[in-house]
Design a protein around this nucleic acid. Structure first.
Lengths: 348, 348
DNA sequence: AATCATTCCTTAATCGGTTACCAAATTTAA
DNA sequence: TTAAATTTGGTAACCGATTAAGGAATGATT
């Protein structure tokens, strides 16, 4: 049988209330009894029941983290940031993942809510067909949550990266290298990130007074396999091909580069490629990938911080927005148009 | 305010016990009252408090998963397996990670226990200096847990991969390709996996009646950076170098290959490399990595299954051991000694 | 000496469920 | 017709903590 607060009270010859007061360092307990109680707690190795406490306090000291893909290095970094910050602040993390499936997202969310987490960090799937009503409900109930990336037509606490600006810098970089036929391998239609990056893609052309190549925008996905498939499809066809591809993320870029390798198309001599995220493997690739570095770990940390602050101040749910900078990392996968890129002085 | 079972009871004009019986589908309730209660539950959108239930039932329907590294693709796959199986069986997953630090491992474990998870899936750090007393304690308390990989001098429920056998096959493969000076880039001293793989390394030589090159066994680590560092160190020195390296895992192999590239040493022409795990990136590398495929997802699934079965049958904690097969995946990073490997017919 | 504050601790209700045990109503058996 | 069995539902204790309210000492105040 588990040792309870009653046991401690009995052994120490005091009431449960006194033990509770000692445990919670409340005033009004004499030094002697405090020490006696503490001694007994030590001796019996007593651990207060977190469940009982949760019931009484109406808080579980846990948060739910609902991501899109568990085995995606980008989310792994976020998880780590969330996890570290939560540990530091005394919270536990319950894991959920949609695996890009709206039905599973719903299920996971419900499971998290059922466990009565004190708050949520969400990375909602988004497209035209997905009902975001649950976000409204959460907000209506004043349930603390923050989203990773903003949600269309919705004000909340958000932590995100400056997607559009970063996309502009990536695409401008390609344009300044002489590229005009630049493709965008967009992420899943679910993704607000992808939309923002697309906006940046277009703006870069706009800023350079070139019409954006709308025919080169493809909905792709977020996995290696997606980039591969689209790469095979696009570059196997006859006709004018793009001289550069801006990819939704590094995984897609990796897939694309695998496809290009199979088709004997050289990167960066024939086609330049630029990614997004800067996952660890970028620098270990055949051609080290030029990409946008996203501070994913920090993103996770900030999200956890913001959420826990919100949990603390239950009343005001002011919509805070934290935007973290992203940075172009120049490696070897981009070359000026028409040259072989060997003259590049960029180092990753 | 939250809707409680008392509210439902009141509205339905019955007692809490009756509502509870309906909720838990216990017999002894007439069809009429059952339906009336269910209707009210529907109407008020009542959700039983999981916390209260946990307190009463002494189970939280959650398990703790304590891994070594969150942002390691191998563990990501395991997590996914655990997560999926747990969702299926109605359990939630609380996440913990040691990040290879024994102190943090202890902290994470305590956090998980404090949350009163019903069981644990552990991937314990192991070396001579680490005190595994906590495992004894858990077992003594009859606390359900299973370990990922076996623990030295300790019988428990284990899910693991046939490390030794797989290592034998990898090293034999190198030996049959003519290699004799084969190095082993061992994982962290913490790892039982690494020890088992080392045993396989030695046995392969034994089976081929060649003395194992003990001078070529290096404690390395488990990250890309570790493989890189050791690669630079070993191959920058003068003297006889190994013609092949068997790496503790793919990350180390990637790091090593980065180092070799910098040193203008060709893989596989000059040095053959073989990894372990078969993470997604192996096939996307400069030289696609020959490696051992570990069914990490299945490992996670099995661990969750085993654990939850154990939680169900509280009494018997028979030490079950599930060993999953691993398989050599031949790609491009190994060549016969003295040739350039272009004659290889192996395809990944 | 009576009154008032302080200090320190206890009592008992509460959080939201589960369940052993009991009791009323109805059916069945004798 | 009455006792016994069955069906159905209620009562109250319990899980293990927290906390508001109250009360017994002790010392201070007049």
């Amino acid at each position: 049988m588990r040792i309870t607060i009653s046991d401690i009270a009995q052994y120490a010859g005091v009431s449960k209330a006194t033990v509770s007061a000692v445990l919670n360092e409340r005033p009004g307990i004499s030094v002697q009894t405090r020490e006696r109680v503490l001694e007994i707690i030590q001796k019996l190795n007593y651990q207060p029941s977190h469940v009982a406490r949760s019931l009484s306090n109406r808080e579980t000291k846990s948060i739910g983290l609902l991501i899109k893909e568990i085995d995606n290095p980008y989310f792994a970094k976020i998880m780590k940031g969330v996890f570290d910050k939560c540990s530091e602040l005394g919270y536990t993390v319950l894991l959920g993942s949609s695996e890009l499936d709206p039905a599973q997202e719903k299920k996971s969310l419900e499971a998290l809510l059922r466990q009565q987490v004190d708050g949520l960090i969400l990375s909602p799937l988004q497209n035209e067909e997905i009902d975001l009503g649950y976000l409204y409900e959460l907000k209506l109930k004043n349930y603390p949550f923050v989203t990773l990336g903003s949600v269309v037509h919705f004000q909340t606490n958000v932590v995100e990266v400056e997607n559009k600006k970063a996309a502009v810098s990536a695409v401008s970089y390609l344009i300044h290298a002489g590229h005009k036929r630049i493709a965008y391998f967009a992420g899943p239609s679910y993704s607000a990130n992808s939309k923002d990056r697309l906006a940046g893609f277009r703006q870069a052309f706009h800023e350079n007074a070139i019409p954006a190549p709308e025919d080169l925008i493809f909905n792709t996905g977020s996995y290696i396999a997606d980039g591969y498939r689209m790469g095979r499809e696009l570059f196997a066809l006859p006709g004018t091909k793009p001289s550069a591809v801006f990819c939704y993320n590094d995984l897609v870029a990796i897939g694309l580069m695998n496809a290009l390798a199979e088709l004997k198309i050289q990167v960066p001599a024939d086609v330049s490629v630029i990614g997004f995220d800067d996952i660890d493997f970028c620098r270990s690739m055949q051609v080290p990938l030029t990409t946008i570095r996203v501070p994913a770990y920090k993103l996770g940390e900030k999200a956890a911080e913001l959420l826990i602050a919100q949990i603390g101040a239950r009343d005001e749910s002011k919509n805070r927005k934290v935007i973290l900078p992203a940075q172009l990392i120049e490696r070897k996968s981009v070359a000026p148009l028409g040259r072989d890129g060997s003259g590049s002085e960029f180092v990753g």
